Amino acid sequence: MQESIWKCQFIEDISEVPATAWDACMASTNPFTHHAFLLALELSGSVGGDSGWRPYHLLLYRHQQLVAVMPLYQKSDSWGEYVFDWAWADAYQRYGVAYYPKLVAAIPFTPISGKRLGIHPQAAAYATEIYQQVNHIIAQQLSQFSSWHGLFLAPVFCEQWQGAGGLKLLRREGCQFHWFNRNYNDFSDFLAALTSRKRKNILKERAKVQHLHYHWFDGAAVSAELWQRFYYCYQMTYLKRAGHGGYLSGDFFVKLGRLLAENVRLLLVCRDNEPPEQAVAAALYLTDDRQQVLYGRYWGTLQDVDGLHFEACYYQGIDYAIRHGFSCFNAGAQGEHKLIRGFEPVITLSLHAIADEAFCQAIERFCEQERQHNQQYFSAMQAALPFKQQVAD
Rank of each mutant, 00 (worst) to 15 (best):
E3Q: 08
I11F: 09
S15Y: 06
V17H: 00
W22Y: 08
A27I: 03
S28L: 03
P31M: 09
F32Y: 13
F32T: 12
T33I: 14
T33V: 14
H35T: 11
F37H: 10
L39Q: 14
L41N: 06
G45Q: 04
G52I: 04
Y56E: 04
L58R: 09
L59T: 05
L60C: 11
R62K: 15
R62Q: 15
Q64F: 00
Q65G: 01
A68I: 10
V69G: 07
K75Q: 09
K75V: 02
S76M: 02
S78R: 05
S78Y: 00
W88T: 13
Y92H: 13
Y95W: 06
Y95E: 11
P101L: 10
L103D: 08
V104L: 15
I107R: 01
K115S: 12
T128W: 01
E129S: 13
Y131E: 10
Q133M: 10
N135I: 05
I137N: 01
I137P: 00
Q140M: 07
L142F: 07
S147G: 10
S147C: 12
F152M: 12
F157S: 09
Q160R: 15
L167A: 07
E173P: 00
E173V: 06
E173T: 14
F177A: 10
F180G: 00
Y184M: 09
S188N: 15
D189L: 05
D189N: 12
K200F: 01
V209C: 15
Q210R: 14
Q210V: 05
H211K: 08
Y214R: 03
F217L: 13
E225N: 09
E225A: 14
R229P: 08
Y231Q: 02
Y231H: 14
Y238P: 01
K240T: 10
G245E: 15
G246R: 05
L248M: 15
F252G: 00
V254W: 01
L256V: 06
L256W: 03
G257Q: 09
G257R: 09
R258T: 11
L260N: 03
A261Y: 01
V264A: 12
L266C: 09
R271D: 11
D272M: 01
D272S: 12
E274Q: 14
P275K: 09
Q292M: 00
Q292A: 14
W299Y: 04
G300E: 07
D306C: 07
E311V: 09
Y314Q: 06
Y314M: 11
G317E: 05
I322S: 04
S327F: 02
N330E: 15
H337L: 07
I340Y: 03
I340H: 10
R341I: 03
L349Y: 15
D356W: 00
A358S: 13
F359K: 02
F359V: 02
E364H: 11
F366N: 01
R371G: 07
R371V: 02
Y377D: 13
F378Y: 14
A380W: 00
M381R: 12
L385T: 02
P386I: 10
K388W: 00
Q390R: 12
